[in-house]
């Protein structure tokens, strides 16, 4: 990797100040950024670690809303959400391997917005709110395409607020090599309606499957999805699966999520 400066502030304000430098880069758990640096594919002047900020490590559960600090690791979410939001805990507990889960953070994952990452499906499928040092962003506004989000320069995810659904499930079909989601579907049933978010599949990144949501609003059962399919045209086609295969898997995983929802 190229040389860089390193700062580990203890408050959000200090972090924001440190990130004001040109080419400074926020560092969460580093599970994507550090390998990128090792490959010399990025050249930040400074890394600003967010994992030393106590505020970003808080988890709270109030009035049906689970709030998770931006620097909370996947392992910590898996443990903390097990009772209140088991589908989210299950998702967090199956990201990568134990080493990844004990370093990687929810804020880092959402800020990176890898099209095959799991957390974007949970956030979009839950209608979560992304809280930053400047504002609150709804998940529907936040995700803007492959590796693209609504975050602006110097903006830090301080927390993510998940409304807890009546029932939910995340079903992931593994890409055989990376074990990221080849296709992952998050289904959550709220009083206001069902949300279905699909990750891994689309060239535009995570997306809501409106047709499936409407069908499940009418009848929250796997059979309600019979005959529905995602359009293969916008799907990713690569070594691990064609566009058609990913479109097909979206349907299979959605049904399995409905069947498994609790």
């Amino acid at each position: 990797m190229y040389e860089f400066e390193f700062e580990k502030p203890s408050t959000v304000a200090e972090a924001v100040a440190a990130l004001a430098d040109e080419d400074a880069q926020a560092l969460g758990g580093g599970q994507t950024l550090i390998p990128t640096l090792k490959q010399r594919l990025a050249m930040p002047s400074k890394l600003v670690s967010l994992t030393g900020i106590p505020q970003l490590k808080e988890i709270s559960d109030n009035d049906g809303v689970l709030t998770i600090g931006g620097a909370v690791t996947h392992a910590a979410v898996a443990e903390a959400a097990a009772g209140s939001y088991p589908a989210l805990a299950d998702l967090a507990g199956h990201i990568g391997d134990p080493a990844v889960r004990n370093r990687g953070t929810i804020g880092g994952s959402l800020a990176n917005n890898d099209p095959a990452a799991c957390y974007p499906a949970a956030a979009l499928g839950s209608g979560a709110t992304i809280v930053t040092n400047r504002r609150e962003i709804t998940a529907d506004e936040y995700f803007q395409g492959l590796f693209e989000t609504a975050l602006e320069e110097g903006e830090i995810i301080t927390a993510v607020r998940f409304p807890v659904p009546e029932k939910a499930s995340y079903q992931k079909f593994l890409q055989p090599a990376s074990r990221f989601a080849l296709v992952g579907v998050f289904v959550a049933k709220y009083a206001a309606g069902v949300r279905v978010a699909v990750t891994g599949a689309s060239e535009e990144g995570v997306f809501r499957w409106a047709e499936a949501e409407a069908a499940l609003d009418a009848d929250f059962a796997p059979g309600a999805l019979d005959g529905l399919s995602v359009d293969a045209a916008g799907m990713i086609g690569d070594l691990h699966g064609t566009k058609e295969y990913r479109a097909h898997l979206a349907g299979v995983m959605a049904k399995r999520a409905v069947a498994a929802a609790r």
């Binding site: 055989p176 090599a177 990376s178 990221f180 070594l239 691990h240």
Partner: peptide, 24 residues
């Protein structure tokens, strides 16, 4: 039989050149 595949594209680039794409 089930996983491994060193795949090249027509430009001679190895598509499965890391564990992100080469399934062990």
């Amino acid at each position: 039989a089930l996983l491994e595949n060193a795949a090249y594209d027509e430009d001679g680039q190895l598509l499965s050149a890391s564990y992100m794409d080469y399934a062990m």
